[in-house]
Amino acid sequence: MNPHTLELTQAEKQFASNTIFHDLSFHVHQDEVLSIVGPSGSGKTTLLRTIAGLEGLSQGRIILNGKDVTRHKAHHRAISFVFQQPLLFPHMNVWENISYGAKLNKTHSHAKTEDLLRSVDLAGYETAYPFELSGGQKQRVALARSLAIEPSLLLLDEPFSSLDPTLRHGLRYWVRNLLKTKGITAVFVTHDHEEALLMGDRVAVFHEGTFQQIGKPDQIHEYPANPYVARFLGSHIILDDDRYAPLKACYVTTETPADSVLSLSGTADHITYHHGQRLGHLYLPHIHERIVLPIPLHVSPGEEIRINVPREHIQTFSKARYSE
């Protein structure tokens, strides 16, 4: 296992009497991408800002490459930050934007800027000003500018949120490949669980100021630690506070099934189509859950249905929040 690039121990942040996060401890390995996913307003951005040094911690320590940087100012930390907006400096062209940080920390070279421009597919745009670029191009310049300072850690705060869905999807794969090709250690924050699973080597589900679970995407997906994680990922039916079943094992019928399955009654509220499948948006009044499952052709909106869960697929929550 690679050594830790970033380590947070018992970190806490408060604004007046409002606790944003508390007792937060985690680490990021070298060359690893950690995705932090959680609902909007859960404090993910504040967490990144404290790591970057834009906000101070109320308690706890931040260790970067084995060095305690808790009290260091932002411009003294080897950390780069890509914000939600590209924030390109409007009075500088693309070349000047990319080389800005590198010139400040005296690592600038013509070849490096050229290489970065090629990496972000913007060769030929050196003299263009930010207002002449599209949203996706601006975000790629912002990424190149962050990489130009050769940071030990790159923080990305929902960098695709201001882009349209098509561009956003394309850019996800592209950024993931770039991070992996260049061996960059990164923390990626998003509110989209699909994006988190796609971008991260490990995924951390953040809610109520703490991590509900950290682990590899498959692990989190297969063995959610608690109902919140399962509900957030949307791939399970939560039967109660202790038990769940994967949606892939459930099926919808209109008749009462055999005793070997747990059958729950519900209604098909809406029908949509996705990935070539007919999907029913189902409401289960007994457990107050809404789920989405493939449904047979003859089921129409508003119809009573039964969701059948084979008993052998019913599992209990792992409760283990941290795993490598």
């Binding site: 970057a52 834009l54 100012k73 932002a74 411009h75 950390i79 780069s80 930050f81 914000f83 907006q85 924030l87 400096f89 800005y100 940080g101 400040l104 920390n105 500018r145 962050s146 300072i149």
Partner: peptide
């Protein structure tokens, strides 16, 4: 934000 961005990039 622009000021924070420059700080992040190493500007004193």
């Amino acid at each position: 934000l622009w000021l924070e961005q420059s700080e992040i990039l190493g500007a004193s």
